[in-house]
Simulated scan of single mutants.
Amino acid sequence: MIDPEIAAAVDLSRPPLTAAGIPARRAAGRVVTDAELTRGGTVTFTEEDADGVPVLVLRPAGSSGPPVLHVHGGGMVAGTRRSDLHVLAEWVSEAGVTLVSPEYRLAPEHPHPAPVQDCYRTLEWVHRAFGSPVVAGTSAGGGLAAAVTLMARDRGGPSVRGQLLMCPMLDDRCETPSSHQFLSGTTWVRSSNLTGWTALLGESRGGPDVSPYAAPARATHLSGLPPTYVDVGSVDVFRDEAVEYASRIWRAGGDAELHVWPGGCHGFDQLVPDAALSRRARSARIEWLRRLLH
């Protein structure tokens, strides 16, 4: 059951995402204003070019901090470099980080590997410009963040200080119990998930030859990864794949912190940022960033 405070504030009647509905979903995306980015003057931002990828760079006013590369969500088919930052700008003001958000190419017009290539190019740029970053992401961006971290490990760099995966979209096979459990009545349902994965992968979705750089749950081993933070709501289609990803990192001898937020639907902290559950989730992430970076 969705947390009552969150359920009262979100529209649970929103129709599932379909291929035909992708343009409308993009058009309906939340517009994050300049005022939300600057958080009362505590944050400054610039639009920059990361080797051909447009990025938004947020810095603490009057200073700079350790870098975080954050990849926005949107089911692989929607979103911009401003997406999610109405909440995540607080990482800059409260944890003192420099946050870089890329505008990666979207499926289905740009299927795999275009999105992850853009994110990896941004990682290389961030590493040159600011040093070794934390790689973070929300939903589809969480999956891309995990994929970029795997690519960096497998290619021998750039170095990554940590990965922060929020309700990550990791597994195109959609076979976990939670991927079958939520068919309606929540913010991201099974049919929407299938639409997103199919847009990214086409007919290969769920087949034997999908790359772990498209679906990180496909990785054969998760050793050698940096410290990892994974969180997800209990009422989320991605719940079980997120828990399994953290568990596999532990089994490989790695460092992972896992939070399953009771009553949290997909994207609850973005949709209702002032809810008590959302504040707890956001506070836990900021505390992890502070421990890791400072």
Rank of each mutant, 00 (worst) to 15 (best):
R173K: 15
C119G: 09
L164F: 14
D118A: 12
P133I: 05
R173Y: 10
L150K: 02
R190M: 10
T138E: 15
L150Q: 00
F130C: 00
Q163T: 14
P133F: 10
L201Y: 02
V126E: 08
P111W: 10
G137L: 12
H110E: 11
L183S: 11
V160F: 12
N193P: 04
R121I: 07
S178V: 10
E109V: 03
V126F: 05
S159R: 15
R153F: 12
P158A: 03
S139D: 05
A114I: 04
V160A: 04
E175M: 12
S139C: 07
A147I: 07
P177K: 06
Q163V: 09
S184Y: 13
A146R: 04
D154M: 02
Q117F: 11
C167W: 08
R153S: 10
V116L: 15
A129I: 03
S192R: 01
W125E: 04
H112Y: 15
A152K: 01
T186Y: 10
R121Y: 12
A114T: 10
G131H: 14
V160Q: 05
G202K: 05
D118S: 14
T198I: 01
E124W: 05
E175K: 09
N193R: 00
L201F: 09
R155M: 11
A147D: 06
P158V: 04
R155Y: 12
A145Q: 01
V148Y: 08
L201S: 07
M169G: 12
T176R: 01
Q117C: 14
V135G: 08
R173E: 14
L150W: 07
P168Y: 08
A140Y: 07
P113D: 13
A152N: 06
E124T: 10
A136R: 00
S191M: 11
D154L: 00
P168K: 06
E124H: 06
E175N: 11
W188Y: 15
H110F: 14
C174D: 12
E175W: 12
R121S: 15
V126I: 12
A146C: 14
W197P: 01
S184V: 07
V148R: 03
P158T: 07
T138P: 04
S191F: 12
H180W: 14
D171V: 05
P168V: 04
V116M: 11
V126Y: 01
Q117R: 15
E109D: 12
H180S: 14
F182Q: 02
G185W: 13
D154E: 13
A114R: 10
L144Q: 02
C119R: 04
L183M: 15
T149H: 00
C119F: 13
L170S: 02
V160S: 05
F130P: 03
V160W: 06
D118C: 12
G162S: 07
S191V: 13
D172E: 09
S179Q: 14
V148F: 13
S159W: 11
D171K: 06
D118H: 13
P168I: 10
S179K: 00
A152G: 07
C167I: 08
G162E: 02
L150D: 02
G162F: 08
L170P: 06
G185Q: 06
A146Q: 09
S139Q: 05
